[in-house]
Design a binder for these strands. Structure first.
Length: 498
RNA sequence: GGCCCGUUAGUCUAGUGGCUAGGACGCAUGGUUCUCAUCCAUGAAGCAGGAGUUCAAUUCUCCUACGGGCUGCCA
């Protein structure tokens, strides 16, 4: 077994997931959270949830609730966070404003930052005049003390900007990608503190990561270009930076950004559709990481045991719905009936197939048949409808194909009579099979010529579980009623005698 | 445009300076069978292209192409 160096050499591994509550938690964010969580759990470290709500214009209380709900649903429990607290509370950045202001002042005092009085309008026109984007022109970088004081006295709105080095490079090491180097001429004098007194991501993120003693920053690769800013900030504060590991992004099927256009993107949507959290976790874990050769399925504990940043891949991965569906189906099949019944219940209830008065175990027989035919929990509704509902819909194509032949009516009539003769308590697969086989033999038909029409008559569909199980599950009363209905409505009328 | 990151079948991936480049999803065919699903078996399908280093490159280096990201008082 490989020895995990990071575990032995640094006893306090602390990682964080730091979402911004501006929208529902999407699968990309969930994957980032998952890798942080797996890394923390694997190493016996601490997983922290920090909410980066520093953008007041985009804040969404709904999103905040959704992020917590979705993470909980996925089972990614956090050790410190806005709701559970912790030694570095608060974990909501909007409640830590004074900390960022103090730190901005500190950088001002040490000469690493400066007041900028440029208006948004000026910056806009600056940008529109630039044929190539070169960022802020640093107009306020060298204002004299008296000029600054004059503006301050005049109460001119300002931001505080960071003084990036004007030449040289900023280098850092990425655990997944190795050394990365950026020319400083590419870097802007980015804003630390906005006019409204809120910090930007860069300031708040660095300050909090330091204060919260974050040891490893695992985040999406879209953050690579701003890492030099962060490295410079750590430097200016005199702090040593955490280990950086930038995770590959998740792309939509076919490439490109993940969005609604490509189907579900939010965790909540997958949840509503009937995916199991274990399946989604397993699937997401395999996007950008692998268990090693020949392994796809793994429980949470196995994922935790096996997880390592060493084998996180560098390449962006496309989200593949077919594989997720396959995985969800295998997880569904592995569930004990009582658990599956509870999970499927809300869907059945919503479809009116069960009510509060329905005993849970009453759906077990039907569920057992549906179980290996479901990919989503919601599939229970179409799969189980013919077993749980009195009324069923008939698929016109199936009716046309299997109920329109002349021999059908006589078969159905004969079977209906024989079924009627079976005692209620014997209406079981084991009892039905010989009954039907006997009829098939007597009538000189092949089994399928009898079974297919029967199936359509009692289920309304051309496909169903095995006919004997299906009949038994539907029950004697409904079976006979449906055959009668089919005879009356679909089967061609034939002379009584045959 | 500039900068940065990346490139193994359609997709997710394993892997090595020398192997028939392995697995999974999906797809195809066959088996089981009353249909569907499951299950089993088999098959098609890949190292982006070009230089170089080397006895030998999918593996190392460079270039090109392609993909992605950043270039905000968003995160």
């Amino acid at each position: 077994m490989p020895v995990d160096q990071s575990h032995t050499s640094s006893p306090s591994i602390r990682v964080r997931f730091a979402p911004s509550p501006t929208g529902l938690l999407h699968v990309g964010g969930a994957r980032t959270a998952l890798f942080n969580w797996l890394f923390a759990r694997h190493s016996g470290g601490t997983f922290i949830l920090r909410i980066e709500d520093t953008d007041r214009t985009r804040f969404d209380a709904n999103a905040l609730r959704d992020i917590l709900d979705s993470l909980r649903w996925l089972g990614l429990n956090w050790d410190e966070g806005p709701d559970v607290g912790g030694p570095h509370a608060p974990y909501l950045q909007s409640e830590r404003l004074h900390i960022y202001r103090e730190h901005a002042q500190q950088l001002l005092a040490s000469g690493h930052a400066y007041y900028c009085f440029c208006s948004p309008e000026r910056l806009d026109s600056l940008r529109s005049q630039q044929s190539i984007q070169t960022g802020y022109d640093r107009r306020c970088r060298n204002l004299s003390t008296s000029q600054v004081q004059r503006e301050l006295d005049a109460r001119t709105p300002y931001v505080i900007r960071f003084k990036m080095p004007l030449d040289g490079t900023t280098d850092f090491h990425d655990l997944i990608r190795g050394p990365i180097s950026y020319p400083n001429t590419q870097q802007d004098d980015f804003v630390l503190l906005k006019t409204d007194g809120f910090p930007t991501y860069h300031l708040a993120n660095v300050v909090d990561d330091h204060l919260m003693r974050i040891s490893h920053v695992l985040r999406g690769e879209e953050w690579i270009p701003s890492t030099p800013k962060h490295v410079r900030l750590y430097d200016a504060f005199g702090w040593s930076p955490p280990v950086f590991a930038h995770l590959p992004v998740i792309l939509a099927p076919g490439g490109g950004k993940l969005s609604k256009r490509h189907g579900a993107a939010a965790v909540a949507e997958y949840r509503a559709l009937g995916y199991l959290p274990d399946a989604l976790v397993n699937f997401l874990a395999l996007l950008g990481w692998s268990l090693g050769p020949d392994r796809e399925l793994a429980s949470r504990d196995e994922l935790i045991r096996e997880f390592s940043l060493e084998n996180v891949s560098k390449t962006a991965a496309q989200f593949n719905h077919e594989k997720l569906n396959w995985m969800n189906a295998t997880y569904i099949r592995s569930l004990p009936l009582n658990q599956l019944a509870a999970l499927v219940w809300p869907y059945l209830a919503q479809a009116g197939l069960v009510s509060d008065a329905t005993p849970l175990d009453s759906i077990f027989p039907a569920l057992k048949l549906a179980q290996e035919r479901m990919q989503l929990l919601s599939d229970a509704v179409p799969q189980m409808r013919c077993f749980l509902a009195d009324e069923i819909d008939y698929d016109p194509a199936a009716v046309k194909k299997f109920l329109s032949h002349h021999a059908v009516a006589s078969h159905l009539r004969a079977l209906m009579q024989r079924f009627a003769a079976i005692p209620d308590s014997h209406f079981t697969p084991a009892y039905l099979e010989p009954v039907i086989n006997a009829y098939v033999a007597e009538s000189g038909q092949s089994l399928k010529h009898v079974v297919h029409p029967l199936r359509v008559a009692v289920t309304g569909k051309a496909a169903s579980p095995g006919i004997f199980e299906t009949l038994a599950c539907i029950g004697k009363r409904r079976t006979i009623a449906r055959i009668a209905y089919a005879l009356e409505h679909f089967a061609p009328t034939l002379p009584q005698s045959q």
